[in-house]
Write a protein that binds this DNA or RNA. Structure first.
Lengths: 127, 127
DNA sequence: CGCCTGTCTCGACGCCCGTCGAATCAGAGA
DNA sequence: TCTCTGATTCGACGGGCGTCGAGACAGGCG
């Protein structure tokens, strides 16, 4: 069945809203935790963390799989699997252009995760 | 063997240095990824994410296990296991005072993770 | 001293995850 | 059309993870 042309993200989390006050400011509700934890989990693998960085820091904001794969001592299918994980976590988008597939970071969710971990100076000083 | 009185963190990552430019600014080196991925992995579970938030947002900057456990439908050993995971990831510190054990967040590593995920407005605008 | 409460460790179970090879799909080009 | 390359899916294997119950350790209190 050929139905993988839709690179839709499984996680939506209304990317417009600020979504979450800092983790250290108010308790993260169970629902929010259930939604955001998979994103952290996806970043919880060294290979995926590097992939994410390579994609996010790429020249035109996008990276070709053909450029990502040779950077690791892993097989193509394994890299593809990791990219799928990042995709399903809502961290990246994929687009096929001709023979090649390009991945692009989704800044919204990255900002949300960063905001969740952010610590205002007050909290840092008091600890 | 009674040697769990030392709540030392297994991850050190010289907490003073800024440690890491944003993930979207320059490629995360393999070494850095290997060190920081476990921290994200530790946050990649809903229970641990909530525990982390409960600890970090607690009144005096610390939370008692006796207050954390009843917030979940999980057994004591399971919560203890998750807290150990957070401890080994360098995200929290534990201290025993009398009968109770108190956990405290480590703001440095939280700041490092947030910095790694941070996106400067330029990158956000171009995407 | 003995007991009780709070916390952790240990061992076990089932499930998920990272990795691979083989096979399949998608396009480009001869 | 046939073939070739790039990327994904599929099935399988081994190891790790989340959860539990039972037991052990720490400390306070009769």
């Amino acid at each position: 069945m050929s139905k993988q042309q839709a690179p839709l993200a499984l996680i939506d989390l209304n990317a417009d809203a600020p979504c979450c006050p800092p983790l250290a400011q108010s308790q993260v509700p169970a629902e929010t935790a259930a939604v955001l934890a998979p994103a952290f989990k996806a970043l919880g693998d060294p290979v995926r963390l590097r992939l994410m960085s390579m994609i996010a820091s790429a020249e035109d904001g996008e990276a070709c799989v053909c450029d990502l794969t040779p950077a690791f001592d892993l097989t193509g299918p394994t890299i593809s699997h990791h990219l799928k994980t990042l995709r399903e976590a809502g961290l990246v988008d994929a687009e096929r252009r001709g023979t090649w597939v390009y991945y692009r970071a989704r800044p919204q969710i990255l900002r949300q995760l960063a905001a969740l971990l952010s610590i205002e100076p007050a909290a840092a000083a008091k600890a």
